[in-house]
């Protein structure tokens, strides 16, 4: 059919529940400089910014999709692929590296069956490398589900994750 349907004024059919996004966007509509806080809030709720969400945000804030996606893809804080319930961040800063964080990363990834940056199949975890989180004194460090675990051995790191797994 006609290519005119590529126009943003032509609303596509979206399968995502946008109720929460709309509630968030209601606070930002028409305000200058609203894009980044709006993206952060929406991501907080949906865990990651899927394409339909980004398209919806662009339309609701009356911005070009190219502009919004440009911002989303620029900042590492915005995620464009699905995120697990818990994010496991393995610090790969210098101190942690010296203290063996690479092995922790490899072992954790192997345990969960993912590559760094990926989400586990059950949608529980996302494993990612981060640069120094500023806790070098207790290297090597991981942050899992917002909790910080320091001075870890590989076994302790795995145990910490298994506890999450069993809901403790």
């Amino acid at each position: 059919m006609c290519a005119e349907s590529n126009k943003e004024c032509c609303k596509p059919k979206i399968a995502v529940d946008l109720t929460a996004a709309n509630e968030i966007l209601d606070q930002y509509r028409g305000k200058p400089g609203a894009l980044i806080p709006a993206l952060q809030k929406v991501q907080e709720h949906y865990r990651w910014l899927s394409q339909p969400l980004v398209e919806h945000i662009a339309r609701e804030l009356n911005m070009f999709l190219s502009e919004v996606y440009g911002v989303v893809s620029f900042y590492s804080q915005f995620y464009t692929s699905p995120r697990g319930e818990y994010t496991i961040q393995i610090c790969r800063g210098t101190a942690c590296h010296v203290k063996g964080s690479l092995r922790i990363l490899e072992q954790l990834a192997a345990e969960l069956g993912v590559e760094p940056g990926e989400m586990t199949r059950d949608g529980k975890f996302t494993v990612e490398e981060v640069n120094c989180i500023g806790a070098c004194g207790i290297a090597p460090v991981i942050v899992a589900g917002g909790k910080t675990f320091g001075s870890l051995t590989v076994a302790q790191a795995l145990a910490a994750i298994r506890n999450f797994d069993s809901g403790v």
């Binding site: 980004v54 070009f64 440009g70 893809s73």
Partner: peptide, 27 residues
């Protein structure tokens, strides 16, 4: 029209269509 944008950053920066989709393009 805003069909084009800069995406990613640093060495990975590319110019293209968002999500490789021709949104808004009027040719």
């Amino acid at each position: 029209v805003g069909a084009l944008g800069f995406f990613q950053r640093g060495f990975s920066t590319v110019i293209g269509y968002p999500y490789n989709k021709l949104v808004n393009c009027e040719y």
